[in-house]
Design a protein around this nucleic acid. Structure first.
Lengths: 229, 229
DNA sequence: GACGAATTAGACAAGAGTGTCTAAATTTAT
DNA sequence: ATAAATTTAGACACTCTTGTCTAATTCGTC
């Protein structure tokens, strides 16, 4: 019998390494080849694992696929929320801070390995697994958009921006920041750091032309940050 | 021997009906199932044609796929240029006219059957056929973006907008117009007319907050449309 | 070092899909 | 009507893939 030191029957340690290796490889292969085009032997080879081990861990191809999507959704969500937490609530230089935030968002969440994989899987297989991707929609965009919108609302309330609808503004911010990367994303490519910075810079400038407080009049506005801590 | 009335040996008339039927069905099936997931029997059934006929027309699955992508690219390009030609060069009501244009763009080019299919195929198989999709990139975005940018440049030159870089403005216009439809597009869905109008309206308003001529001062600007015909 | 659990290679049956071939039926134009 | 071209259904060989099974091996732990 086993010691069972941990709460729930946790299988040996080495397992987890294999498991992670399988998840990584399966994500990559499903992403590259699509569900139908991927085959278990490819995944096994890429994971450095025997085919049987994959069946031992996940049962069958479809269960494996579902596990991958759930895993990617979780990991991406974590990344997105981590990045949202770096939103400039008390910006020193509004433009520079928003550009930096936009770049972080694009690099860490959209261009990241997980981000790229999840996006591709959603685009490719979304229609085939309605309930799975409905789940993603709720847990992903359904939670992240309000969180981003709330940050913009705060920024507006603190007097830095002139926003009517924070939800719309949040989506437009993201759209503007990535406006010049669309074609690259379409083809599954990864933009260079320079391209990301360019697009973010142009996007944020336009965003601020639209939403920055209109008449700075005197400096009365600037110091009226009574919404602070 | 045949009359050979037309320039190059044109096969019988009825062929074309079958050919078109095959293209339609193949586009739909490839889009729905991805290249690897699609099978010829499915396409044959959906086209109301025997499997052998498909092989007679196109040789093999891959050649058929390439033919589909080329066909869709051409048709979409035609649609995009047709829509671009309705760009409001001499707008009566700038906001209303740009909103209407944005809606046409989204409905006719992005939400259209061909647009949806082409987009999905590019996203799904783009990495697998680099040269084919490089071709698309040149003939598609490579030609349409400059065309749209040129229209915005004209509008700016005519005094309606305050734009520094028309290429950037064109991409941002498009990004803003579809900002609220991204999640729907991701999952392969088609937004309602209402959603399209909403997103376009919000997008154009933001676009104009950023790029409308700043100080309308008198009405001097409005009538200085000396860039006209 | 010895035990039990997990992993491995390989063979295997079953099923599905591609692309070819044939002979019959259908269409099209003369 | 007749002749040529095209389409069709079905059978076919071939390949690939899935998922299972077995026996040998390796790994982690005591």
């Amino acid at each position: 019998m086993k010691h069972d030191v941990s709460p729930d029957s946790i299988p040996p340690r080495g397992h987890e390494a294999k498991r992670a290796s399988i998840m990584d490889a399966a994500g990559a292969v499903f992403c590259r080849e699509s569900f139908a085009g991927a085959n278990i032997d490819m995944i096994a080879a890429e994971a450095g694992v025997s085919r049987q081990t994959i069946y031992n861990h996940h049962g069958d191809k479809e269960k494996l696929f579902v596990a991958i999507v759930r895993d990617l959704t979780e990991r991406c969500n974590a990344g997105i929320f981590a990045t949202i937490s770096t939103f400039p609530d008390q910006p020193k230089d509004l433009e520079a801070d928003l550009i930096a935030f936009a770049v972080r968002m694009t690099r860490n969440c959209i261009c990241s390995r997980d981000g790229k994989f999840l996006r591709k899987l959603i685009q490719t297989e979304g229609e085939r697994y309605p309930e799975l991707f409905a789940e993603w929609r709720e847990l992903g965009p359904g939670r992240t958009w309000p969180a981003i919108a709330a940050r913009f609302a705060r920024l507006a309330h603190a007097g830095f921006l002139d926003i009517e609808d924070p939800d719309v503004a949040a989506r437009q911010f993201q759209a503007l920041a990535n406006a010049e990367l669309q074609t690259t994303f379409m083809l599954g490519g990864t933009p260079t750091d320079d391209e990301v910075l360019q697009s973010a810079t142009h996007g944020v400038r336009t965003f601020l032309r639209a939403f920055a407080k209109r008449q700075p009049a005197a400096d009365a506005q600037k110091h009226s940050a009574l919404a602070g801590a």
